[in-house]
């Protein structure tokens, strides 16, 4: 069958993806595989190419060269199959201000052709989980930044994606919501959801990730679990210190 996915395929498979914006090379050839149920974190300085990489995985940007496969489906050749498997939340997500949280969930559920009963059932559960059930009929324009972020996460999770891609997901959430969201992500990963997110909060990456990828100047300069990275770079330091050293080294390499 055309576009049929192999069950044991990695959930995300990047092969030599590059992205150029005119003369600027934002992503310079990344190869990466992420397994189902894995929590993978992408860290890197501003302008390193994190967002471009995530957007290419989500099908919002076309790679200049290379391939992106989601659940075995090529994102360019079989976009519908690939998109059914995932959700993406960008760093500054805009939302329909004149809809209520419930209506936004209804809308996104219908975009994924979900049954109205399933939208009702799972949507209500998500609204409760994010403590939005008491404001489910208030327009989103009335909400604070953190509340909006919760609505957005709920809408993205409604169709129970197999791959959840998030760009800086914890920004704006209060400490209680951050704690419960971290627990939620861990629980979903145990159920088999692949989580891929970028962050500047290295302690979050340390705590949550099965593997961490450090990206700088469009290159993936290090990939592995925290202990792998410590072993590989013969370091007993935490992620922050290791990150600073690696980026400095890359700076020297690029300057040379």
């Amino acid at each position: 069958m055309k576009g049929e996915s192999l069950y044991m395929d990695p959930m995300v498979e990047l092969r030599g993806i590059k992205k150029n914006y005119g003369l600027k090379e934002a992503v310079k050839g990344i190869d990466l595989e992420i397994r189902p149920g894995e929590i993978f974190t992408l860290v890197g300085p501003n302008g390193a190419g994190k967002t471009s990489t995530l957007k290419m995985m989500a099908g919002l940007l076309k790679p200049t060269s290379g391939t992106v496969r989601i659940g075995g489906f090529d994102i360019l050749k079989n976009p519908m199959n690939a998109k059914e498997l995932m959700s993406f939340v960008p760093d500054a997500p805009y939302v329909y201000e004149k809809l209520t949280p419930w209506e936004l969930l209804r809308f996104t559920g219908k975009l994924y052709s979900m049954d109205i009963k399933a939208i009702q059932e799972y949507g209500r559960r998500l609204l409760k989980f994010f403590s939005l059930d008491h404001v489910d009929n208030v327009l989103i324009e009335e909400f604070s930044h953190g509340m909006r972020q919760k609505v957005i996460l709920a809408a993205a999770l409604l169709h129970n994606p197999k791959l959840f891609i998030l760009d800086e997901p914890m920004v704006g959430l209060d400490p209680i919501s951050i704690r419960s969201f971290k627990d939620f992500l861990k629980a979903k990963a145990r159920e088999g959801m692949t989580v891929l997110f970028s962050t500047h909060t290295l302690s979050v990456a340390e705590e949550l990730s099965d593997r961490i990828g450090i990206i700088d100047r469009g290159r993936l300069i290090a990939v592995g679990s925290l202990s792998d990275l410590q072993r590989k770079y013969q370091s007993k330091e935490n992620l922050e210190q290791m990150f600073m050293k690696l980026v400095e080294k890359e700076e020297v390499r690029a300057g040379a």
């Binding site: 989500a58 099908g59 919002l60 199959n81 993406f88 939340v89 997500p93 805009y94 975009l111």
Partner: peptide, 12 residues
């Protein structure tokens, strides 16, 4: 367009 995180990723 600014809501691309919803519609750009939706299977439609």
């Amino acid at each position: 367009g600014t809501k691309a995180w919803i519609i750009g990723v939706a299977p439609m």
